[in-house]
Write a protein that binds this DNA or RNA. Structure first.
Lengths: 252, 252
DNA sequence: CGCCCAGTTGAAACTTTTCAACTGTGGTGG
DNA sequence: CCACCACAGTTGAAAAGTTTCAACTGGGCG
């Protein structure tokens, strides 16, 4: 190893880390829910918005579920701080991770039409969310047009990012998927102003493996290999992307 | 082979086939665009709807593109008859198939937010579409609220189906993917009332392979194996699912 | 301090890809 | 109408990548 000063020594880690447990919040302006919050005047007391339509900064303990798969749809959530995973359980009882949510991102949008949540969403660490009760939106007294337009924009964005992701992941090799996952993770943090150089991966290797459709051993091996190649530095859940261009090249 | 009477002999095929080139149209009531067409009175002359907002049954020749990747968003399309594929081209110039569209399904929904189409969509056979010009919708004289609600429903449905698909495909083996593809294809035809027992796969093996993230040789081998196992019967592009439960079991 | 479980590592089995040759089909022109 | 061509599709064999099973390591938590 030829990294003279490691940023991972435990006494400096907390200072260097930008997404540590429960620490950093996304700014409202960078949050996906902002267009809607804006239309609802952020539920400030003077806005005259009825109680319970927009609930901000609700804390969610590590391991707690936001909702269960199959439960009737009632709210869209935005992650304010922390992280969540979305898990489905198939007919045989096996569960797979279908997504992760980081600060600023929206949870539950795909349930709008079906009327039921299609996955169980669980907090990976102590987190907080803003909750918009869709079933009470008509009581808001606000013109529906603006709200609906905002929702259309949100859904459409989600749709296009999911489409892109699907296309990327399915046809790539293990190392490509892991590289794309890391680069994407860093990018998503960066996009919301949460610093991308070094971060904590709040999910387990098995969660990553399940999400990427690989065996957890394979993910582990790829992490090790990337580290040997000087592309990343890893210490437990703390991860630092050393050679972002290199990773991007692998991700394709 | 022990199939005494093959339904594939060329003289009976056209009678048996339910999705042959340019033949069968989806009924409006079974089409994904119907809620919107309904809100716009199907652009009937007496509806007073300005010209060019909703154009119905526009023919599209085999190989013609509906729109190119990157082009500004202007319309949502619904397939009336035929079939389309959606293709993206990455930085290196390699192109991959990211989706197929069958009668009754919507094309272009994910471009709404970004303002640009995210893929090139091309007709796989002589087809026809209905086109809804989103950029002229405000001239329709109709209340936006109803239209927006219909769009939200469409987007949300799309989102949930794409999510489900992504989860399925990525973590499955080759045979599982192909089985799921076949079952899904039959299901989509059936859903729109287009008969599912026997059909024409309008896309090439390479298109299927690209879509499923496999080599075309692998797809070919799997088709052959399924046929040997008595799960399907194949003659060129004509395909018949013999043992649907068996395929479903493989698809997981 | 030690247990427990996530994470890592190794070796063998299996799946998929790759490269290459070959076949069959549909379309075109003689 | 038939022969020929081009290309999609199929098949084979070797190489590469991934999973599986099993053993081992190390860090976090009681």
């Amino acid at each position: 190893m030829d990294f003279p000063s490691t940023p991972f020594s435990s006494d400096t880690a907390s200072a260097a880390c930008c997404a540590s447990s429960g620490a950093s919040e996304v700014a409202c302006e960078a949050c996906g829910l902002d267009p809607l919050c804006d239309a609802l005047d952020y539920a400030e007391p003077e806005s005259g918005l009825p109680e319970g339509i927009l609930m901000r900064r609700r804390p969610v303990a590590r391991g707690a579920t936001l909702f269960e798969m199959g439960e009737p749809f009632h709210s869209i959530f935005a992650v304010k701080s922390g992280a969540f995973k979305s898990v489905i359980r198939d007919g045989t009882g096996a569960s797979t991770v279908v997504g992760f949510y980081l600060p600023g991102e929206l949870i539950g949008t795909e349930a709008y039409a079906g009327g039921r949540y299609s996955a169980t969403v669980r907090a990976l660490e102590n987190s907080s969310v803003c909750e918009l009760r869709m079933d009470r939106l008509s009581q808001s007294g606000r013109p529906l047009e603006e709200i609906q337009h905002a929702i259309i924009t949100l859904l459409s964005q989600d749709l296009s990012s999911v489409r892109a992701l699907q296309a990327e992941l399915i046809r790539q090799s293990g190392p490509q998927r892991v590289a794309a996952f890391l680069v994407g993770f860093a990018h998503r943090l960066d996009e919301r102003g949460l610093g991308a150089g070094e971060f904590r991966l709040p999910m387990s290797r098995s969660d990553i493996a399940s999400y990427l459709g690989l065996a957890s051993e394979t993910v582990s091996r790829i992490f090790t290999r990337f580290q040997r190649q000087g592309l990343i530095r890893v210490r437990g859940k703390r991860t630092c992307l050393i050679d972002l261009p290199g990773l991007r090249k692998i991700a394709g």
